[in-house]
């Protein structure tokens, strides 16, 4: 289903200017739609947009919230981008992140109280990556062995993981009558960055390292070449001896692991416990980040900051316009970038 078209859409245009043009058109379109919606809601768009900028950058709390949102989005965006590079549409980052949050929190609470940070943090991260990678791997295996479309299996697994996490919370983890679990040990907590008491933490370093790692893998290693070759043209990749099935499964495991690691931002850096709905929406929004970033790690970083700005800015001006307006815009961005890509390419060919 749709394999060829997805690959067509993703074919790198080998032209940075064209990629930037597509992203710019998409952003401008989203701003235009957003402005229309604000008018419908009876607000002056110029006032709302300027308040969003002013509040975000003059109040260090909102600047920190931007960084907090962007950290999670960069990791889930990178996860979706990696899978897209390999020709797979992983919209299961949401479930993979939830699995990561659960694993991260369970490991964080069950470690001995005196565990030093140098041991506790890597253990929590490894657990989160493994849990996310496992969910991603299931999607990859079903695609490769059963030809089950990853979009449908991803959605089913998102619902299943969310339900299982809630069940685990209600039966074992939540403290009597609440939707919060026991706190993780001191050593597993990532230091806060300050920013007026915002949720931003050192997790941002993990996101930056992940971006650097994927960038290096995809541009300078044979592994990266293999996964992008499979994404561009599976038949051609097969004919030069690449094990397409293996690459697809590993791409999904890697993608799931990245989404799982985003748990660090929420559990280790912010809440320090398992909580119902923690990080919700970050996986879904990662799709927007990956598409807007044109699947390149640098693009993903910029897109994460941009959508992070929309997310935190939307909350900063929630007293002026309903925050649902901004949630809707995040979908508009995806639609716009999906349309702008082929448009820019056709224009270049003509």
């Amino acid at each position: 289903m749709g394999e060829r078209s997805l690959v067509d859409w993703l074919r790198p245009s080998a032209n940075l200017k064209r990629e930037l043009e597509a992203a710019l058109i998409a952003v401008l379109f989203a701003v235009a739609i957003g402005s229309v919606l604000m008018l419908i809601a009876g607000k002056a768009p110029g006032y709302v947009w300027s308040q969003m900028l002013i509040r975000t950058f003059s109040d260090s709390y909102w600047t920190g919230q931007l960084l907090y949102k962007a950290t999670g989005l960069a990791l889930t965006g990178l996860a979706v981008a990696l899978a897209l590079d390999a020709g797979l549409f992983n919209i299961g980052a949401e479930g993979q992140l939830t699995a990561g949050v659960l694993a991260c929190a369970v490991i964080g609470t069950s470690l001995p109280e005196s565990t030093p940070a140098i041991l506790a943090i890597p253990l929590c991260l490894a657990g989160a990556a493994a849990a996310g990678g496992l969910v991603g791997g299931v999607i990859g295996v079903l695609r490769v062995t059963r030809d089950a479309h990853e979009v449908i299996t991803s959605i089913m697994l998102n619902a299943i993981v969310a339900g299982l996490a809630l069940y685990a919370g209600n039966t074992v983890l939540f403290k009597g009558g609440t939707t919060t679990g026991a706190p993780i040990v001191e050593g597993a907590r990532l230091p806060q960055l300050g920013f007026g008491g915002s949720s931003a933490s050192v997790a941002i370093v993990i996101a930056i390292l992940a971006i650097a790692l994927v960038w290096w893998l995809r541009s300078s290693t044979t592994i990266g070449q293999a996964w992008r070759a499979v994404g561009r043209d599976p038949d051609a990749a097969r004919s030069v001896g690449i094990d397409v099935a293996k690459v697809r499964i590993f791409a999904m495991v890697g993608s799931g692991a990245l989404a799982g690691i985003a748990a660090a931002n929420f559990v280790l850096g912010h809440k320090h416990a398992f909580e119902e709905g923690l990080g919700r929406g970050t996986g879904l929004l990662g799709i927007s980040v990956a598409l807007l970033g044109r699947t390149h790690p640098a693009g993903v970083a910029i897109a994460a900051l941009l959508l992070g700005f929309l997310s935190s800015g939307g909350l900063a001006v929630a007293d002026i316009v309903p925050k649902e307006l901004i949630e809707m815009l995040q979908g508009v961005v995806v639609l716009a970038v999906a349309c702008a890509g082929p448009y820019v390419r056709r224009k270049a060919v003509a």
């Binding site: 749709g2 997805l6 799709i287 995806v334 639609l335 082929p342």
Partner: peptide, 12 residues
């Protein structure tokens, strides 16, 4: 535009 992505975007 890619039909899979259009669908997912509309759902969001």
């Amino acid at each position: 535009a890619d039909q899979v992505i259009v669908g997912v975007a509309l759902n969001v």
